[in-house]
């Protein structure tokens, strides 16, 4: 069963198309890796899911709720982390999470739980503006994970983390479906990361969905198209390159 489904979802800004008629299918209880180079439309798609921007065309359903009517209902079930971490610099990490907890109507213990999950417990009383980049990233993640929501939308969550941090967060994301039964929709431009984390992947380039399926499906599809299949990175780069050439030709 798909927990997130989009039908021809489109977003244009003037004559620029950021997302071009994509139809995604994210199965429940899995990690879905959303891949694409910078500017491919990953963040825009995620913003569409959160109602942070309005679609120009198409529609989407999250856990049976359709946008825009069910926006507040959708947001009750979605923990999110979009682009740069968003927080209040004049508040401590704990106070930032307390705001989110109160709005979501969660029990008091959920703040400590989120801090623990992201390894911020010992820094909880420090002002968020004094956090390092990695700590700000963790605070953003804690804000998404708080209350262990059934759907997590994470936009490049390991940006700015050191290798140890990347490993920790990756392991955490990987374990979430088994631990809490949630679905994770995670974007990245790092192929190696996706290979270790995702059950399914979607590849986006210039707003168009080039591929959707499992990693094995990707390999067979790439082989059929004559793309290299040695490593996921080679496959991805070849697919993007082929698409770019095709688009260039089309112009």
């Amino acid at each position: 069963m798909n927990i997130i489904e989009t039908q021809n979802l489109t977003k244009t800004y003037g004559d620029f198309t950021a997302v071009s008629g994509i139809s995604l299918h994210v199965p429940k209880g899995t990690v879905y890796g959303f891949l694409g180079p910078n500017g491919a439309g990953k963040s825009t798609t995620m913003k569409l899911f959160l109602g942070l921007t309005q679609p120009t065309g198409g529609s989407f359903v999250i856990d049976g709720k359709r946008f825009p009517g069910g926006r507040v209902q959708i947001l009750k079930e979605v923990g999110s982390f979009i682009e740069a971490p968003a927080f209040y610099g004049n508040l401590t990490g704990e106070e930032n999470l307390e705001i989110i907890r109160r709005i979501l109507g969660l029990p008091r213990s959920s703040v400590a739980d989120a801090l623990e999950l992201t390894g911020l417990t010992q820094h909880r009383r420090k002002l968020a503006k004094k956090y390092s980049i990695g700590m700000k990233q963790r605070l953003g993640l804690a804000g998404a994970l708080i209350g262990r929501p059934p759907v997590l939308i994470l936009d490049e969550p390991t940006n700015g983390l050191d290798p140890v941090g990347i490993h920790e967060i990756r392991s955490l994301i990987r374990s979430l479906p088994q631990q809490f039964g949630c679905t994770v929709f995670v974007s990245s431009h790092l192929l190696s990361e996706m290979e270790l984390m995702a059950d399914n992947i979607g590849i986006l380039n210039h707003g168009r969905l080039l591929f959707e399926g499992t990693l094995d499906d990707l390999k067979s599809s790439a082989a059929a198209q004559g793309c290299p299949t040695g490593s996921l990175e080679d496959t991805f780069l070849a697919m993007i390159d082929a698409d770019n050439r095709q688009r260039g030709g089309a112009r």
């Binding site: 942070l52 507040v72 979605v78 971490p85 968003a86 209040y88 004049n90 989110i100 979501l104």
Partner: peptide, 18 residues
């Protein structure tokens, strides 16, 4: 400015509150 400085407003808009 409290909302805009560190994009706190973005987090608020992605929470279930009208």
């Amino acid at each position: 400015q409290t909302e805009r400085t560190d994009h706190g407003i973005l987090k608020m808009l992605s929470l279930p509150v009208r």
